[in-house]
Design a protein around this nucleic acid. Structure first.
Lengths: 198, 198
DNA sequence: ACCTGAACACCGTTCAAGT
DNA sequence: ACCTGAACACCGTTCAAGT
């Protein structure tokens, strides 16, 4: 798809845009002005659209590496000793990364329901890798049996979202993260499950 | 402030705008086009700005009643038998209302950090009323002692946010609500507190 | 094959001109 | 005192014209 048989100027523009986009999205979030990106990359609007037909396509190019890295990181942590601690650690790293771009958690959440989105594939792969950490912790009886990877992902993303909503709530995000994780731990179940081995 | 000594046409315009705004914000969310509202209310842009100098001011007019009602509702529920169930009930009603306007949870969360916002006062009052429900449930030992009203409000709003991000996650919001509430229940604490009376 | 930038249809916000 | 709508500075998206 991104075959290397591009014209030299095309290749250069592609990279310029991506580099500038990284900066601008850092500044303005995932809703950054595409016009601003084109301007600062010194290319015409059409050039930006040629390389990245949608905003999502641009984000995908910006995030794929990161998603792949996080998926791989989940693989590493699967071998770690404490399954619950491994999950917690992964989620912490995920959340740290999510905070680099404002609006990123929203983009990831909407992409779940939108299979046509270019972000869908790489984001799903990451979620699935994380899901295996959840399942392992469940097999160890450390996480409630009635949740799945999607639940955990959604709740932790939501904590990331909270942190974006202003300083007063942002300063609580560490605590909120702990509350959510604690809440998902086995033993928190109020009535229906987990009552055999006491 | 909204003294009744307005000119008749001003009074009429104010009400027209508010009525139309309710519909448009229902359709498009809190980021609805102000131009569209003015157009459909058949007033000039200047008229809209005269009555509602900022988008937040318009939202405030749209939401004040609701916030006041929810604050009053919390007062009612303070007298209810089961403190934990009262809290759960209030949060459920809050969440139901939040889903009427897309973007509403975000507006409420950002308003927390922005004391200058017209939404700040009525939203804070509501949160404080809800906070008393939290404290009562804590006094009864039903909610973790290391959370406060803001934590609960943020987490439940975050569940509302999740529901806005697409059908795949929206259909889980009931479950996620339960997970969060369960997680905040006393007994979920992993190590540090609550270990005296067993 | 690729790039450019004008053109189009939208925004939010302001403000001179009207009654 | 209040209303109007044009004006301004922005968007995102498309596409004819160029090389």
């Amino acid at each position: 798809m991104t075959g290397r048989q591009q014209r030299a100027d095309a290749q250069r523009n592609y990279e310029r845009i991506l580099e500038v986009a990284r900066t601008v999205v850092e500044e303005q979030g995932t809703q950054a002005s595409l016009r601003d990106i084109a301007r600062r990359a010194e290319v015409g609007m059409g050039t930006l659209y040629r390389h990245f037909p949608t905003r999502e396509a641009l984000l995908e190019a910006l995030l794929r590496q990161r998603f792949d890295r996080l998926a791989a990181r989940a693989g590493e942590l699967e071998g770690a000793g404490d399954s619950h601690e491994a999950l917690r650690q992964w989620l912490r790293e995920f959340l740290g990364g999510a905070s680099t771009y404002r609006g990123l958690t929203a983009s990831m959440m909407t992409t779940i329901s939108d299979e046509g989105s270019p972000l869908h594939a790489s984001c799903s792969a990451m979620r699935e890798a994380a899901g295996r950490l959840v399942e392992r912790a469940q097999d160890d009886g450390r996480i409630r049996p009635d949740v799945d990877g999607m639940d955990v992902f959604a709740l932790v993303s939501a904590v990331g979202w909270i942190a974006e909503q202003g300083p007063v709530v942002a300063e609580r995000s560490e605590h909120l993260f702990s509350l959510v994780l604690d809440g998902l731990a086995a033993g928190a179940v109020s009535g229906r499950a987990r009552r055999s081995a006491d």
